[in-house]
């Protein structure tokens, strides 16, 4: 997918997250985009790696930087966290270039925003880590929760066993709802 088209989807995700009262910092965008691409099959083409606290795409980070340069998004600084990323002066023009694309993926974008905007950054990091482990490490998600939790805490020692179990449950709920969405559309 070409850069501007990709950017229009990211912009619509940002708008949807803000509508759902997300803080919408870069981590929110990174983790929700990961779900949008990997779980909802929106073909954005970003390469994600398992970084210190969960999946992260340097390409997406570069795209957000390019969107800032083109004034499609801008930073909004608020205490106490890092800056929020909000639509910029040329955001509307970008969306007008790709009405069909935005329509095509509207359902997936709204779904991810609705399901994930309520989670804080620490939760998002853990839930996205679970999905990464399932997809990249060949884990099926059918293993015993305790086994999966053990694996995750070994891989990422900053995550406690209890936190891993909660994240597994949260990820599973999102995945089930995503399946329902796919069936209905």
């Amino acid at each position: 997918m070409e850069r501007l088209k990709r950017s229009s989807i990211i912009l619509s995700l940002i708008e949807s997250l803000l509508e759902e009262n997300s803080w919408c910092g870069e981590t929110h965008i990174q983790k929700t985009t990961y779900f949008l691409q990997e779980l909802l099959d929106v073909p954005l083409g970003y390469e994600f790696i398992l970084y210190k606290h969960g999946p992260y795409s340097f390409d997406l980070s570069d795209d957000i930087m390019a969107m800032r340069a083109d004034m499609m998004v801008q930073l909004q600084s608020r205490s106490p966290y890092g800056p929020s990323i909000v639509p910029g002066p040329t955001g509307q023009q970008l969306k007008e270039l790709f009405p069909k694309t935005l329509k095509k993926y509207e359902g997936q974008v709204k779904f991810i925003a609705k399901e994930m905007a309520g989670y804080n950054v620490a939760d998002l990091e853990r839930i996205a880590t679970v999905l990464y482990v399932i997809l990249e490490k060949g884990k099926t998600g059918r293993e015993e929760t305790s086994q999966m939790a053990l694996y995750i805490t070994k891989l990422k020692p900053h995550i406690s066993s209890e936190q891993a179990c909660t994240a597994l449950e949260q990820e599973s709920q999102i995945r089930d709802k995503a399946k329902e969405l796919a069936k209905s559309s």
Binding site: E26, D62, M65, L75, S77, R78, S79, P80, G82, P83
Partner: peptide, 23 residues
């Protein structure tokens, strides 16, 4: 071409507390 990297957002240790650079 767009510049790569150069995030202005990073943590700062200010009087024993972590604050955000952009704040």
């Amino acid at each position: 071409y767009t510049q790569e990297g150069g995030s202005q957002s990073f943590p700062i240790l200010h009087r024993g507390k972590i604050l955000q650079s952009t704040v």
